[in-house]
Design a protein around this nucleic acid. Structure first.
Length: 553
RNA sequence: AGUCCGAUGGUGUAAAGGUAGCACUACAGUUUUUGGUACUGUCUGUCUAGGUUCGAAUCCUGGUCGGACUACCA
């Protein structure tokens, strides 16, 4: 336990519980519903639950909250497990709420026997109508006073499939006038003649969240059941069930879910983006999903560090996307191999360099890592450079190419521009330079110092690749709080595809998932769709660009 | 309207009655064969009104503002 870092409110509770001997060790759990893919908010919860267990030498279970067969699928189970592992966490037990269906059924029978639950024949509309409203008490259901025997028989028949969907429900008998709407005789079981991804057709009644979650926690002896703020109103019901059932008293604690600027986080909205093809699936690199971020090139370490940095609390929040990007750059800076790629090319001809001659230059792979070694980069009299690195009428602080200006070609020579060509539309088509023979990188005896260094790729040796430039998915910080539909705020430029980018030859061997820094352009990751025949790079994040800022002034 | 939760710079998060700190962002500068990295510095904050106290971001009371809850979803 590091005393240097201050404790968050959950750590304080846990340390108190441990100090007072309330528990010998703690047991947490991460309880996803397998009806969608994990996103960065889940990553935060995973990091919290698994992190707490690790810090206090306790345990953390993975439990799928699969009580609604309508929306849940095995495909999601697999992706969730995969994402958690990728994030670097291991669960102690792998459980499913559906494993407890028989036990849960028994709990319901116990409640009926105690006179605390009843079968209601009302329709959904009738139940809603009798529920009352915020500030308005509800009314008792006409079926509320059925005898224990009748309830037992009816509930049994529900299980046996005697009734159609929605014909009957099992309800807790609590208080129809309670100020907390959730305590107005909440529904415990509903009939759904549907195939469940794990129990198949064994059941046609399924417990509701409130009659499954707390009990599952209890069955697993979870000490600290951590969930998000919107469940705070459920806690009295959570406690009520545990108390009436007389089972292990797990406790629920709530924290505020983390929001990220320039994106949306709700599963419903993410599903919409996928279904309506605004993005290319759940793992589209623009999605805030774990799989999307992984494909984009974000690392697990960066994500973990991000979760650590934003911390947890109980107030509403929107975390700045720039913090996530900072964490990603920080990690990639240490591990990404540098290389050169020209995204928007223009030809530079070195007029005093022998045509047909090739030099193999040795360039460092990563100045941040001494052990990363060097690679060979071929140089010749014609190189591609970035169009934006040349200006016909450069401003004062432009440290790049323009008539008479000098720059160093990274790892090679200093060149000076003496001429350029334009087409009929005024576009620059070719830049002519002379190179300083004595300025070769590593043994520069020219005595010339230039302000700018630019990247390049030899025309004769260049390979090509597709590059996908990603930007934030939305134009506004909080799309959900804007007027109208959140989809109206999608950034139309969130993806820009460059079909043919010139890359240095060493990049041709890049494999899917590998990270690179394209010098001065950003961090890139080889896409999962990439192949030896057709290389595809995703831009993970740009480099900080103080020149771009300077220009905006 | 009822119940519950929350309020610290632009953002996120600390300070458990005693110097309002850290990170990101922004800005300025140093270093640099990436206008990257690294390093240095600067700006900006306790919702409000009372009260308790030698002393309040912290405790108490009132107010204000924001959020959640009215699914046979979780």
């Amino acid at each position: 336990m590091s005393e240097e870092k201050s404790l968050n409110f959950l750590e304080e509770i846990i340390e108190k519980d441990l100090a007072e001997g309330k528990y010998k060790y703690i047991h947490t759990r991460f309880p996803p519903e397998p009806n969608g893919y994990l996103h960065i908010g889940h990553a935060s919860s995973i990091h919290l639950n698994f992190g707490l267990a690790k810090k206090y030498k306790g345990k953390c279970n993975l439990r799928f909250d699969d009580t609604n067969p309508t929306t849940e699928e095995t495909e999601y189970v697999e992706s969730i497990k995969n994402d958690i592992k990728w994030l670097g966490f291991e669960w102690d037990g792998e459980y499913y709420a559906s494993d407890y269906f028989e036990q849960l059924y028994g709990f319901a029978v116990k409640l009926i026997n105690k006179g605390l639950a009843y079968v209601d024949d009302s329709t959904a509309e009738e139940i809603a109508a009798l529920k009352g409203n915020i500030g308005v008490p509800g009314t008792n259901s006409p079926y509320r006073e059925r005898t224990v025997e009748e309830n037992l028989r009816l509930f049994q028949e529900m299980r046996e499939g005697k009734y159609k969907d929605s014909e009957k429900v099992l309800r807790a008998k609590i208080d129809m006038a309670h100020p907390n709407l959730l305590l107005r005789d909440p529904i415990l079981y509903r009939i759904k003649h549907e195939h469940h991804h794990r129990t198949g057709d064994k059941w046609c009644i399924y417990p509701m969240y409130d009659f499954a979650h707390g009990q599952s926690d209890s069955i697993e002896n979870i000490t600290h059941s951590i969930c998000t703020l919107e469940f705070i109103h459920h806690r009295p019901l959570y406690d009520w069930c545990i108390q009436q059932l007389e089972i292990f008293p797990s406790h629920q604690y709530e924290f505020a879910r983390r929001n990220l600027s320039y994106t949306v986080m709700s599963k419903r909205k993410l599903l919409q983006l996928v279904n309506e093809k605004h993005v290319d699936g759940w793992n589209d690199p623009r999605m805030p999903t774990v799989s999307g971020m992984r494909r984009r090139g974000y690392t697990a370490a960066a994500l973990r560090n991000f979760c650590d940095t934003i911390g947890i609390a109980k107030r509403e929040n929107v975390v700045d996307l720039s913090l996530l990007e900072f964490c990603v750059r920080e990690d990639l800076n240490k591990l990404a191999t540098r290389s050169m790629a020209v995204l928007d090319p223009v030809k530079l001809v070195i007029t005093n360099y022998p045509e047909g001659q090739t030099e193999n230059l040795e360039i460092e792979n990563n100045p941040e890592d001494e052990n990363s070694g060097k690679r060979t980069v071929p140089f010749s009299n014609e190189v591609w450079i970035e169009r934006e690195d040349f200006m016909e009428n450069p401003p004062k602080k432009f440290f790049r190419l323009g008539m008479g200006l000098m720059v160093r070609l990274k790892g090679a020579y200093i060149v000076q521009c003496n001429d350029f060509k334009k087409d009929e539309n005024g576009n620059i088509t070719e830049i002519h330079c002379t190179y300083i023979r004595e300025s070769r990188s590593g043994n520069d005896t020219s005595g010339i110092h230039v302000k700018g260094t630019i990247h390049w790729v030899s025309v004769a040796h260049a390979k090509t690749a597709e590059v996908r430039l990603y930007d934030r998915l939305f134009r506004v910080e909080d799309p959900s709080s804007e007027d109208g539909d959140f989809k109206d705020y999608i950034n139309p430029d969130s993806l820009q595809v460059l079909p043919q980018v010139f890359i240095e030859p060493s990049l041709a061997a890049a494999k899917p998932g590998e990270h690179f820094q394209f010098l001065r352009k950003g961090y890139f990751c080889v896409d999962t769709d990439s192949s030896a025949e057709k290389l595809i790079f995703n831009r993970t994040v740009t480099l900080k660009d103080s020149w771009a800022k300077e220009q905006k002034k």
